[in-house]
Design a protein around this nucleic acid. Sequence first.
DNA 1: TATGAATGAGTCTTCATTCAT
DNA 2: TATGAATGAAGACTCATTCAT
Lengths: 201, 201, 201, 201
Amino acid sequence: MESQERRAQILEHAARLFGDKGYHDTSISDIIAAAGIARGTFYLHFTNKRGIFEELLDGMLKDLTESVVTVDTSPEAPSAREQLLDNITRVIELFSVKRHMPAILFTGAVGLDKEFDAKVNDFYEALTDEMMGSLILGRKMGLVRQCNTRIAARIALGAFKEMLHEIFHNEERKGQDPRKLAAEVLDIFSRGVLEDGVSIP
Amino acid sequence: MESQERRAQILEHAARLFGDKGYHDTSISDIIAAAGIARGTFYLHFTNKRGIFEELLDGMLKDLTESVVTVDTSPEAPSAREQLLDNITRVIELFSVKRHMPAILFTGAVGLDKEFDAKVNDFYEALTDEMMGSLILGRKMGLVRQCNTRIAARIALGAFKEMLHEIFHNEERKGQDPRKLAAEVLDIFSRGVLEDGVSIP
Amino acid sequence: MESQERRAQILEHAARLFGDKGYHDTSISDIIAAAGIARGTFYLHFTNKRGIFEELLDGMLKDLTESVVTVDTSPEAPSAREQLLDNITRVIELFSVKRHMPAILFTGAVGLDKEFDAKVNDFYEALTDEMMGSLILGRKMGLVRQCNTRIAARIALGAFKEMLHEIFHNEERKGQDPRKLAAEVLDIFSRGVLEDGVSIP
Amino acid sequence: MESQERRAQILEHAARLFGDKGYHDTSISDIIAAAGIARGTFYLHFTNKRGIFEELLDGMLKDLTESVVTVDTSPEAPSAREQLLDNITRVIELFSVKRHMPAILFTGAVGLDKEFDAKVNDFYEALTDEMMGSLILGRKMGLVRQCNTRIAARIALGAFKEMLHEIFHNEERKGQDPRKLAAEVLDIFSRGVLEDGVSIP
DNA sequence: TATGAATGAGTCTTCATTCAT
DNA sequence: TATGAATGAAGACTCATTCAT
C-alpha cells in the first residue's frame, strides 16, 4: 500500500479511537489492531503516540480555521447575518462529517499536555480576536452598544461552544437543522450586544 | 492522627496536584510524597486513585450546587438581578478560594472517564434546568421574549463557563472585581432574551 | 527482606550475568529471573539497567583503587619490590574472589558508552600517573635509566593487564601462585627500565 | 553498480560507523543511510548485521597478520632489530590509514560475542606463539635470559597493545614518529628479557 | 539487482495496588 | 492505623530481518 494511503488509514482509526476512549485509554495496540497493521508499521508513519495525536489535532484546527471566514463587508456581499450563519453552519457540518472532532476537541485534547492546551487555546484566542474586531467595528458604526468587547467576544465563543457540545451530545439534536440552531444563538447574542432596535445588517 | 484529619490533609494535597498536573500526570507517589505518608496509608483512606479523584469532584460539585441558589421571587426578597449577581459572584469567589477547582473541573475531569463526564454533565444539566425554569417563568410573566428556552439556558451556561475560564486563565483578570464581570455577562445575556425595553426586575 | 540485602542480592546476580553474557545480552528479565524477584522490585532498587551496571563498575574500580597502595619509601617499610608484588598480588586475589570482575572490566565495560569508557580510562590514567611518579623518583635516585617515563608506565600497565587477562582466561593458570606470576612481570619490566646492574631496592 | 564495488562501499561506511559508535549503537538504518542504499540492498550483499561486522573484523585481522612478518635470520637480511621495528611501524601505519581499525579492534569487537572474542584472541595467540618462538630461539643462542617465555611474550603483546591504544587515543601522540615510539617499547622489552650486556642483534 | 513497506519479537520502564509486619 | 517492600500487568518503542514489487 502506498505510504500516504496507509497514513490516512491509520489516522482514521486513531481518530475514532481517541474520540471514543480518549487519549490515555487508547493504546498503540488498540490502534494497530483496529488498523490491522503490525506494531512496527505504526512507527513507520508516526514518530509517537503523541505525534499522531498532534497530527490529528493540527488537522482539526486547520479545518476549523478554514471553515470560519471573516465577514465580507463589501456592498455586493451577502448580508452579515447570512455570512455569520454560514460560518456557524459550516462548523456544525464539519463536525457532523468528521464525527470524532467534537469528542477530541472538546474533551480528548483537554488537559493532556501544556502544548496541546496551548494549541487549542491559541485557536480560541484567534477566534476571540476576530470577533472582538467585528464588535469594535460595529461599535464605531453605532450598531454595537457600549460594552467590554473582549468579554462579549468570549461570551459568544462560550455560547457557541456550548451549543456545539449540546448538538453532539444530545442524540435528538443530531437531526435538527443546524442553521436554525445557529440562528437561535446568533439572535440571542446579537440582541445582547447591539443597540436597542438595531439588528445585524 | 485522627482519621478525618488525615483524609482531609491527603485530599488537599491531591487537589493541588490534580489541579497542577492533571489526573494522569499525578501519581500516587506524588500524592503520598506531598502528604508525607506511606503508600499503604493512602489505601487505608481511599479505595483508589479514581476514588480520591471522585471524592474531590463530588465535593466540588456539591460546593458549586450550594453556591447557586434559586432566585427568590417573594416580594421582600432582593431584586432578581441582585440575586443572580450574588450567585455568579459566589461561584467566582468559591473558585478563588479553592484555587484548584477551575483546573480540575474545566480540564482535569474532562474526558477522563465516562462516569466522571456524566457527573459533570449532570451538574450542568441541572443548572440548565434551573435556568430554563426561570426563563419559562419570565416568559409567562411577559418579560422573556419568544425563544428556545433550552438553547437559551445552554447558551447562558456556556457564556458563564467561558467567563470563568477567562478569569482563571488570564493573570490580569484575577484582580478584577468579580461582580463587575458578572454584571457584564448578565447584561448581555438578559438583553438577549428579554423583550425589548424590559430589564431583569 | 531488608532493602540493603535485596540490593546486594540483585547486584550479585547482575554481576554474574553481565560477566557471563555481557551488557547487551543481559536483559532485565534475565536479572530478575536470576534474582527471583518481580520486575518492579528491580526498579525499586535501581533506576536503570545502566544504573545497576554503573554501580557495579564503580564498585569494582573502587575496590581496585583500594587494592593498589602507593609504595612506602620510609626506612622501616618493607622493600619496594615486596610492596609492588603485594600490590599485584592483591589485585589478582581480588579478581579471584570477585570472579566476574575481569570479564566486566576487560570486556563488558569496553565500548559500551562514552561515560563508562571514560571511567575505566580515568582509572588507568591514575594508575599510569602513579607509576610515572615512581619512575621519575627512581630516575632522580639514579636507579632508572633514561627513558620516556609515560611510555614506560603505560607499557607496564599494558603488561599487567595482559597478564591478568591471561590468568583469567587460561584455565591452567588459575591454580598458579599469583605471586610468582607477579614476580615474572615485575622482573622483566624492572630490568627494562633500570640502569645496568641495578635492581629494585 | 558492480556488486564488488557496492560491497566495498557499504563495508567502508559500516567500518566508519562501527568505529565511531560501536556495534550496538550502529543500526542497519545508519549504515544504509550513510551508504545511500535501500534496506533490502544491504541484505543482498550481507547476510546479517553480524555478517558485515564479521567480514570487517576478518579483513582487519588478515591485514594485521600480513603486516607482521617473521624475522628473517639469514645473514643477508637486515638486523633483527630493524625487522622488529619494521613490523611495529607497519602496524602503526596500517592503523593510521584504516582509521577505524583501532576503535573496532580494541573496543568495538570486545565482549560482543564469544565467537568474535575467540577470533581476536586467536590472533593474539598466534602472535604470542610467534614471539615465544623468537624468545626460545634467542634463549638457545644465549641471548635471552632465563624466563617464562610465554609470560614474556604475553607481556610484550600487552605492552604493544597499550602503546597502540595510547597512540590512537592521545591526540598529541598522533603526529609523533611511529618508529621512535616503537623503539622505546622495543628497548624496554628487550632489556627486560635479554642477558646482561646483550642487545638485539 | 534494487527497493522500501511491513513485520513482530523483544526491551525497557511505569505505576496502581497488595500485604506481611 | 501505619508502613514500605513487593508485585506484575500493561504500555511505548526499537530494530534486525523479510518479501512483494
